[in-house]
Every structure is written in structure tokens, then in C-alpha cells.
Amino acid sequence: MLVFGAWEIAGRIPISLAFPTFGETVAALLALIADGSLIKAYASTLQPLLIGIAVSAVVGVAAGVGMGLSRSLEWLALPIFIILQAAPLAAIIPLITYIYGIGLTAKSLAVILLATPVVVMNAYKGIRNTDPSLIAMGRSFLGTRTQQILKIMIPHARGLIFAGLRLGLAMGFVGVVVAELLITPTGIGDLITYHGSVANYAEMYASIVSIVALAAVTIGALERVERRLFRATGAAA
């Protein structure tokens, strides 16, 4: 509420010509919903986002757990993900478009490249840092390797894996917007670029706010799913 109030005041002063008031932005948002352009934009933005996030989650958790379990896999893959995590996406995007063109594949790939490393690194650390004393306990009570992984290492890594998925989701949103701004303007990226270029600043801000809000809501929902899961399996700490 405070933020919205400050925004309203800042918009009225006005700080900049390109800065609409909160009221104007809300009105623009409603207009965008009413004329269907926002829905059309999300229909196209969500495609690379969902594909990218799904691939990142599955591949990322699998790769991270694998690297945590196998020294040779760690040796092979760890440097790749460390480099990916550090690489600026804007510099990689021209390379992606050069190889994969400007379609859905390229945009999904941008999401994957941004979201996967953090998912991988968290899952990897969660597995690798399992309390050695719990490992010894499992061995002394004659647990098999499979039981060690399923009953000790993965539950131990669960918190970090979920934290990685949340961060990955956030990175995925960044990835899809950057891709839509830098590759070809489609979906929400198109909406932002178009309204910016014709000086419909209220509409531009409304589009930006809508994607930020969507990101926040999805991440919040994931957190709730996580808490529900933890309770179902009886974890308190």
C-alpha cells in the first residue's frame, strides 16, 4: 500500500514525463485486459516460459543430484554450470539466435540457460553436503546405496532443491522477458516495446507490473506447495 501511495505521488510530481501515476497504470492495465491484448501477449509469453521452466526443473534437479552422487559427473559438469551461472545472458543471446533462429526454441533456450544453473547448483550442494554422520548411520544400519540416496540424501537436500527451484523460476521470468526484448518482440516483451515506442507509458508500465506480479504470485505459490509437501511427509525442521 505504501509503495502504491509513494508511486502515486511520484507520478504526480512528475519525476519524469515517462513516469505515469499509479492510477493511470491501473486504468491502463484494465484497458489492456479488456481489449484482450494482455491475454494474447501472455498466451505467447507463457509458452517458452513453461517449456523452459519445466526443462530446467527436471534436467536441473537430475543433473544436480547426479553431480552430488558421482565424482566423475561432478568433474565433468560442474565447470559448465559455474560458467553458465556467471555468463551474462545478453552476450549469449546473439549466439542462440545465430544457431536456433528467433522462434520458440531460441526463447525457451534463453529461459533454460538462465534458470538451470541455480537449480543444478542448489541440488548439487544439498546432496554433496549431506551430514557425513547420517551417511555413517545409514551404513551402520545396513542401508543400501539406493536407500542412502532416497531416505537420507534427497530428504536432506530437499530444502535446498526447493530454494533452487524458486530461484530458477525467478530467473526463468527474467530469461523470457529478456528474450522477448532482445530476440524478437513477442508477447509481453512486444507489449512493453510497442507501448514504449509510441509513448503510451501507462500501458508500458502496466505490462511490466503485470509480469512482475505474475512472477511474485507463482513463486509464492511454489513456496506454499513446498510447505504443504513438507508437512505431508512430516517434517518440522
Binding site: D131, P155, A235
Partner: peptide, 8 residues
């Protein structure tokens, strides 16, 4: 150090 599963 007890080695108990904290989630169980």
C-alpha cells in the same frame, strides 16, 4: 552426535 534424521 546422535545422527538422527531431523525431518523424521
Amino acid at each position: 552426535d546422535f545422527a538422527l534424521l531431523p525431518w523424521a
